[in-house]
Design a protein around this nucleic acid. Sequence first.
DNA 1: CCTTTCACCTGTATGC
DNA 2: TGCATACAGGTGAAAG
Length: 288
Amino acid sequence: MPELPEVEVVRRGLERWVSGRVVAHAEVFHPRAIRRHAPGAEEFVSRLKGRTVGSAERRGKYLWLPLDGSDAILAHLGMSGQLLMVEPDSAPEKHLRVRIAFTDGGPDLRFVDQRTFGHVLVTAMGHSGGRPVPEPIVHIAADPFEAHFDDEKFASRLRAKQTEVKRALLDQSLISGVGNIYADEALWRAGLHGVRPTGALTKPKIAELLAAARQVMAAALSEGGTSFDSLYVNVNGESGYFDRSLAVYGRRDEPCPRCGAPIIRESFMNRSSYSCPRCQPRPRKAGL
DNA sequence: CCTTTCACCTGTATGC
DNA sequence: TGCATACAGGTGAAAG
C-alpha cells in the first residue's frame, strides 16, 4: 500500500543512509524484481559496481538514486516492496530480491518484496514535467507536492476526461502519488462520491479535492505514513501510525467522523472503496 | 485515441 | 484438520 507519503518516508531514509556511498557489489535473488531492467541481471550487477550514489529523489510513488555519470537506480515498491538498511552479515530475509552492498562495509540496501509487484532497475535519465526523471517514468505526471505541479492544468485535464473522479485520481499520468487509500480519504474530505463524473465537477470543487489530497497526504507524512500490516515499513523496518487517523478507509460500519453515518464499503475495479453514504451521496444519474 | 479490464504475485483470514 | 476461496492492490499490456 505504499502511496506518496509512505514512499517519501522511504526516500528520506535513503537520503540519510545511502547517499554519498559507493557500491561494492549487487546481487539479484529473483529475476522478477529486475524484470524492467531490459539488459538483464548480469548487466544490472556489473553496471552498479563502483558507482557513487547521489541524493534520493521521488515522483509520486517512484523513487530513484542518481548515480555518478548520468543514470540512476529506479525503484517502485509495488504493493509489498520494502527498501531496508540491514547489516551486511545479517541473514537473508525470506523475500529478499536484491541486495546492494557498499565499500564502507556499512549497512546493505536490501529490496525485500513478498508479492513481487515492485521492481528496481538501472536506467538513463529523461525529462518530464519540468525536471529530469528516469526515462521509464517520463509518462508519470508530477505529484501535487512538486513545485511544477500545475493546478489549473490538472483541473482542465480532469474535466476533459470521460471517466469517474476516483479513476482519475488513481490515473498516474494525470496526478501521481495518490493510491486507493488516499483517494478515498481525499474524496471523503471533499464530500464527493468516487463515481461522480469528472466532466460535471466545478473548478472550485476540483480545487477543494486537490487541497484535500494534499492535506491528507501531508498529515500522513507527518505521522510516518500509513500501515495496515507489517508490509509497509521505513528503511529501519518501522511502521507509521496514520492508519489511526483515517476517516473512511478500512472502516466499514464505523461512524463517519463528520456526521456519524455508518461507513460503507463498495466494490470498485476488483478492490474496495470506502465512503460515507450521507456526506458523499452517489450521483443521481450514472453517466451524467 | 481514449477508457476499461485483466494478469501479475503470495500471505492471511474466513468459510465449509 | 484440511482444503477452497476471497482479499489486499499498483502498474502496464491488452482489449474494448
